[in-house]
Amino acid sequence: MTYYFFSFGRYMPFIKKLSFYGVMLLTFYVQGSKAQTNIPLYPDNQILFAKEGTEIPRLTVYKPAKMKSDIAVIVCSGGSYGGRANDWEGIPACKTLNDAGITAFLLDYRVPNPTRMQHKEIVPLTDAQRAIQYVREHAAEYKVDAAKVGIMGFSAGGHLVTTVGTHFGKTALDNPQSTSLKPAFVIAVYPVVSFADSLTHWDSRNNLIGPDITSAEIKEYSNELQVTVDTPPFFLVSALDDNVVKVENSLYLEAALRQCEVPVELYLYAKGGHGFGVNNKTVSKQWTAPCMKWILSNKWKISNNK
């Protein structure tokens, strides 16, 4: 084995000539890496419903360079409940929130898999509820308001967050502090909402429940049917030409929210298809600007799980 030894002395003249901008770039990189902290979702890896070989769900904290708000947003990428499109959806969304001065938490929820977990159909919901519970119970640590924790999701992640927004009274979590699991608000981008045959995204439905889904399960996980007057406010985004997840998923949910007089904003694109994330390349004006304004301009509050 050969060892190589280097002396920094011979390189000192070169190091001293590093430009101011190079040093600043290095500083920015180091600070940026510190701003992102990975947190196991469950204490001591006591992961609910886990079997041997389970993946470890986690939160990644994205802190803005300058906080402009005490609001926090948990972000859930899509992926048909078969994966998580973090690079395309979740991470850019967290950075967009940071640019608006908002603290973001990227959630790596577990993808339903019967060989790695029990009760796979409620595992993503349980992980998302645990994320809300964690952020609320550690709000002071992150300098956010526990009453102002919202959640954002894309595609199948949109189904997850609309489930969070309509099923907050049901949980498998231990909750000794009676922490509210109701998000202050929900942002759903080209979301899967319904599991009805005429509307659903089949891969998402099959991955979460399976092909032997019952009529009761279809109703339970069709979130447009689960809206009540206690459902939190929604911001919905879809494109009319989405040929993967029908725009009617958002339209039916909007109608249900309005019927219950729940505040809702719907941002519709004429074009864009599915999976455009934070940047619909067919247009010049993005949904993110009015969404950030919507988040920052509202005085969010929560009640208990009622």
Rank of each mutant, 00 (worst) to 15 (best):
56 I>V: 14
80 S>R: 01
39 I>F: 14
71 I>V: 08
49 F>C: 08
55 E>P: 06
152 M>L: 15
117 M>R: 00
87 D>I: 00
125 L>W: 04
110 R>K: 12
75 V>A: 06
121 E>S: 14
146 A>M: 08
77 S>D: 00
74 I>P: 04
72 A>V: 02
94 C>V: 05
82 G>M: 07
60 T>H: 08
60 T>R: 13
150 G>T: 00
55 E>W: 04
38 N>I: 15
102 I>V: 14
74 I>G: 01
83 G>Q: 08
103 T>R: 08
91 I>G: 05
70 D>E: 08
50 A>I: 09
34 K>T: 07
87 D>P: 02
86 N>P: 02
60 T>D: 07
62 Y>S: 11
146 A>T: 08
142 Y>G: 03
43 P>H: 13
149 V>D: 05
136 R>F: 06
45 N>D: 14
82 G>L: 03
137 E>C: 06
112 P>L: 11
59 L>C: 14
145 D>Y: 04
75 V>N: 04
74 I>Q: 03
72 A>C: 03
133 Q>E: 10
41 L>M: 14
79 G>P: 02
137 E>R: 05
49 F>W: 05
78 G>T: 00
129 Q>D: 09
117 M>L: 04
135 V>P: 03
127 D>K: 14
37 T>H: 11
79 G>K: 01
130 R>K: 15
57 P>M: 12
113 N>Q: 06
38 N>R: 15
52 E>T: 14
84 R>L: 15
73 V>C: 03
70 D>Q: 06
58 R>D: 08
117 M>H: 02
60 T>M: 13
92 P>L: 14
127 D>C: 13
83 G>C: 10
48 L>K: 15
124 P>S: 10
40 P>E: 13
55 E>M: 09
108 D>K: 10
45 N>F: 09
110 R>D: 10
107 L>E: 07
65 A>D: 09
138 H>Y: 02
62 Y>A: 12
142 Y>Q: 01
147 A>C: 09
38 N>A: 14
147 A>V: 10
100 A>Y: 07
118 Q>K: 14
134 Y>G: 04
34 K>I: 11
53 G>H: 06
52 E>S: 13
110 R>P: 12
123 V>Q: 06
152 M>Q: 12
75 V>I: 08
90 G>K: 05
70 D>L: 01
89 E>A: 01
98 N>S: 10
